[in-house]
């Protein structure tokens, strides 16, 4: 009984530690400035939507929302389309050939982004492409393709190989097998991969910071504009932060089973 009690005390402490920062940001976004900085902190306060009004009235931030949406959806869709083709092809090869391909794809994911962002930046400056959406979309698609391939391989591997044999005997061409058998059978995995790519792209900061221009800024970059020299506008900042992460928390919980898989794959087989 005492053991049980301590277990639940420990569990509460753990959950508090995990959830408190999230709670604190969300709660602060509903506070008036005088409540936000009160010491000792006020736990009960009069909620306000002022911070959200302020953020949503900010043209730059609203545009960043659109940018993030456009960039993450389109680059993820491209990456998943390309990734699905490649993953299908790779899963049909014999073990030896596969290992080589999978190792190569994994190696693409180890190099720091810096090493490839700098030359891309240099090119973009010369081409005058820094302020164009396609640059970000292309770069994110390029980053997401290896990830999509290795994740989709794990889903396609769950499909018994005999299905392809059966379809071949039944007279299906290779593309029909991919399109009519494999894609529908792995539909859940394909959607999960797409969501994970969107999640990653939406949250990504380094590439966005270096390769976006004034009119292509995504949300993580845009929010840093609240960190001004005059000081930090915590009210607006926490409201913006809440707006940025909320859609991803929802998406993330939708595909929670796949997240750990998505974040480890590749390495698992390395």
């Amino acid at each position: 009984m005492i053991k049980r009690f301590f277990f639940y005390v420990g569990l509460v402490v753990l959950l508090a530690a995990v959830l408190f920062p999230l709670y604190w940001v969300v709660v602060t976004s509903f506070k008036l400035p005088r409540d936000a900085f009160a010491i000792p902190p006020v736990w009960l306060f009069e909620p306000t939507l002022d911070n959200f009004r302020k953020v949503l009235a900010n043209q730059t931030f609203v545009r960043a929302f659109t940018n993030s949406f456009v960039v993450s959806i389109s680059s993820s869709a491209i990456a998943v389309a390309i990734g699905a083709l490649a993953a299908y092809g790779i899963t049909q090869q014999d073990a030896e050939k596969r290992r080589g391909q999978e190792k190569f794809i994994l190696s693409l994911r180890i190099a720091p982004a810096l090493v490839f962002v700098i030359p891309v930046y240099y090119f973009a400056v010369r081409l005058g492409a820094l302020n164009q959406h396609w640059l970000l979309i292309a770069v994110y698609a390029f980053i997401n393709v290896p990830f999509a391939i290795s994740l989709l391989i794990t889903f396609f591997d769950d499909i018994p190989r005999e299905l392809r044999d059966a379809a071949r005997v039944d007279g299906a061409r290779e593309f029909a097998i991919f399109w009519r058998i494999y894609l529908p059978a792995a539909r859940g995995g394909v959607v999960a991969t797409l969501i994970l790519c969107v999640l990653f792209t939406w949250n990504e900061f380094f590439v966005a910071l270096t390769l976006s221009g004034r009119s292509t800024q995504t949300l993580p970059v845009s929010i840093t504009s609240f960190l001004t020299f005059q000081g930090i506008q915590w009210g607006a900042l926490t409201a913006a932060a809440t707006l940025i992460m909320l859609p991803m928390l929802v998406l993330g919980i939708l595909v929670q089973g796949q997240i750990v898989r998505g974040m480890t794959l590749g390495s698992v087989k390395g």
Partner: peptide, 23 residues
């Protein structure tokens, strides 16, 4: 509990940084 443990992982890293800066 498992679902809740997911929260820090999928939270936008920039927001995590801001949150801790706030704390």
């Amino acid at each position: 509990v498992r679902t809740l443990l997911l929260v820090p992982i999928i939270m936008t890293p920039v927001v995590v940084g801001l949150t801790w800066r706030f704390i």
